[in-house]
Design a protein around this nucleic acid. Structure first.
Lengths: 251, 251
DNA sequence: ATGACCCCTTGATATAAATCAATGCAGAGC
DNA sequence: GCTCTGCATTGATTTATATCAAGGGGTCAT
């Protein structure tokens, strides 16, 4: 059962129907509003419609749940875990266009087919809506449309940054940019380590490099004293300053 | 004076105030609605507010009208001509993130600073709004918000395609993809030629290549009989089929 | 006309990153 | 205990593309 502790509806039990389907906390996250402002805008009929619309889904690591080119039936909001989004060429070359963490939307596009594939990096929890119902939700909750526009704008900025990276940065600059992005968006653990849920292959496909180049670059950074590569997927950033100047090509 | 022939308001002259400031046809384009549905939703007070909000701007070729990192005061809708959008690194390396033609929006981002620069490729006509007023326009015309979301979604799809191109395609595949994109989005002239308004340098900065590689690749395609490179910026696609299989790496 | 400038093309060479190859390590299954 | 498999690291070599360099053909101002 989803955590509802951050939402204050203990006094209004009927409202918890939403929580029961995993919708309420996610819906708050989607709309980026306080739960109370969402709930004051809906009535009992809405509740049943919303409950009906959302399904909580759990996807195991490595499982692909959106196939590029398939009919786009669903719309997702990531609740926990990390998803990789990718596009592929017929001969198997693959470009990961982004990693989506908690709060991110998938399947926004206007097209009736998915423009990308999506695969769980680790265990992923999703809030799934049918796109058809999504459309009626948007009519009823105009805030949500604004929220989606905001999200799309942010993704667009990220995409443009990534285009600069892919088109004009060297391997070292790419890896430095990636580590800093990850450190800014994800959280560091208690030891100050950055936990990267994805494999070297995923990083390579995200940065437009090969596995070997990513590995060599990380080794070089370690030799330079910029980072410490721990066991598994943990990395410590020892000199954020040097990584930053490297990432922007100031060297 | 802007062309109003596509809008049917000859019988309601007062409405032409909008056309007088270059707003009305552009506004229709922005909202992607028939002029009548826009105008039925507004009254005289709205007209003066809208007229006030929009300014028609003409930008000469090569003129940069958005500086990356400057405060984002305005919001633009391209009326005619082609704009190049770009991001740059401190040492001068540049990535063109897209070319914006008639109907495209600029300055959508949530941030209070422009995330990219914009420069006119040829003579560009723009409809300019202050972002502050844009916000109130969005409140009054909810259709517009949906239209912007649609636009942003389409741009996101284009950005992801470009990431695949920049990260994983060879020079030949990149140039082939570019030519086909241009042929699909722009119009061919009467001789079946594609007119590219941008220089080889712009194409290179868009495709993550150098001028020399773009030039050599076009020469190679000509030698292969895929294209014909005319005088100036005109190119004829002789075998769209071969270009398509090349663009997707099927060779 | 002349020179300056910009853009494009083509050739020769250099290099960053890919590819090919070998090895090590850790977890899963038997 | 084993082997098998996937992932990561490191080394040797290749290659696609960048860089360096030269020359041609416009256009514009003098």
């Amino acid at each position: 059962m989803p955590d509802t502790s951050s939402c204050q509806f203990e006094q209004r039990p009927r409202r918890l129907v939403m929580g029961a389907v995993g919708l309420q906390p996610d819906f708050c996250k989607m709309c980026n509003v306080r739960p109370s402002s969402v709930c004051s805008a809906i009535d009992d009929a809405d509740i049943s419609r919303l409950s009906d619309a959302a399904v909580e889904t759990i996807v195991p690591p490595g499982r692909c749940f959106i196939e590029e080119g398939e009919p786009a039936t669903d719309f997702f909001n990531v609740t926990s875990g990390t998803v990789k989004l990718f596009k592929a060429l017929p001969d198997g070359r693959r470009q990961i266009t982004g990693f989506a963490g908690p709060g991110h939307f998938l399947g926004l596009a206007v097209s009736d087919r998915y423009a990308f594939g999506a695969e769980a990096v680790d265990t992923v929890r999703l809030c799934r809506f049918s796109r058809e119902r999504m459309r009626t939700l948007l009519d009823d909750f105009p805030r949500m449309e604004r929220r989606l526009l905001e999200e799309a704008s942010n993704e667009l900025v990220a995409a443009h940054n990534q285009m600069l990276l892919l088109g004009r940065k060297t391997a070292r600059e790419r890896v430095a940019s990636f580590l800093l992005d990850q450190a800014n968006h994800g959280e560091l653990n208690s030891a100050g380590q950055l936990h990267l849920p994805m494999t070297r292959g995923d990083i390579a496909d995200y940065l437009g490099l090969t596995i070997e180049t990513v590995s060599r670059t990380l080794s070089w950074m370690r030799a330079q004293g910029m980072i410490d590569v721990g066991k598994g997927y943990a990395i410590t950033l020892l000199s954020r300053e040097r990584l930053e100047s490297l990432a922007e090509g100031e060297d």
